[in-house]
């Protein structure tokens, strides 16, 4: 897995590419030379045991952390070391492992404020207030569509802080949709969510992938849903790539079963 083809003809379909990425915290090598690539328009799973470095990878890719070394390429352009907002503006949007809504804003506002180019410049406030008003109308319409799709329409005027855990997960995903991302990097979107809602979230992800062509990278511990919606799964352990394949293939991979599935079982037994 360490070698990644540099042949441009195979690169065309790559949305996101990570190469020999490293990040240490003091003595802990949280990400230790991980490499993988994600094809455009796919739903790719990123799995691995607790502490494998998945969230750290998400933080590195989204710019929240700066890599010690290695490359991250979005659509063939290096984005490693850029500021998070620069990466977000290039169309890579991430969500957080713990829901992070804007608590003192309504559900509707949570969505609208997440869209790009709202006309949020001071010059518009001073001299061209109509710019914001016009754009707001478009955004409200888009937000209404999104809210209806995600079943949050009845909650549109509720403060986001009052939502339940599951509703917050739906809000996070619908908010990400408003940003019109090319690549959506979801860090455990199903964590702490009941089985019925996991199904629903999975359907939404598949729907967005089909309708809008959004590329998804899904960090997830729920292997059932990963198996169901991911065409390709990357397994990481100890900060490096362990294996790549479909879930069915990975189940037969001895190293994966040892490091991940086995580890998981042992952990469960131990606790």
């Amino acid at each position: 897995m360490a070698t990644i083809s540099n042949d441009p003809s195979t690169q065309v379909n790559v949305a996101l590419e990570v190469e020999s990425l490293k990040k240490s915290f003091g003595g802990v090598a949280a990400v230790d030379g991980v490499s993988f690539s994600v094809e455009k328009g796919t739903i790719t799973g990123l799995i691995g045991p607790n502490g494998a470095g998945k969230s750290t990878m998400v933080n590195l890719i989204s710019g929240a952390l700066k890599p010690d070394s290695g490359h991250i390429r979005l659509d063939g352009h290096e984005i490693g070391g850029l500021e998070p907002h620069q990466i977000g503006a290039r169309g890579l949007i991430r969500t957080f492992q713990i829901s992070r809504e804007y608590p003192d804003m309504t559900v509707m506002e949570n969505l609208i404020v997440s869209a790009a180019n709202q006309g949020e410049r001071l010059i518009n406030v001073c001299f061209r207030p109509s710019v914001g008003k016009k754009r707001d109308r478009e955004l409200v319409e888009r937000a209404l569509h999104t809210l209806v799709t995600f079943g949050l329409y009845p909650l549109r005027n509720e403060y986001a802080r009052n939502l339940s855990g599951g509703q917050k997960r739906l809000l996070e995903l619908s908010r990400a949709v408003m940003a019109d991302p090319k690549v959506l990097l979801l860090d455990e979107p199903m964590a702490g969510v009941n089985p019925a809602l996991i199904e629903k979230l999975g359907e939404h992800i598949v729907g967005l992938n089909k309708e809008l062509g959004t590329t998804f990278v899904l960090v997830e511990h729920n292997l059932e849903i990963v198996e169901k919606i991911c065409s390709k799964v990357i397994v990481v352990a100890l900060g490096a790539t362990l294996a790549v394949g479909t879930m069915a293939e990975l189940r037969k991979n001895q190293a994966v079963v040892e490091a991940y599935l086995g580890g998981d079982v042992r952990e469960r037994v131990g606790s």
Partner: peptide
């Protein structure tokens, strides 16, 4: 409400 999220959304 949450600076990191706004930043992650490209602002």
């Amino acid at each position: 409400d949450d600076q990191d999220v706004v930043e992650a959304f490209g602002k």
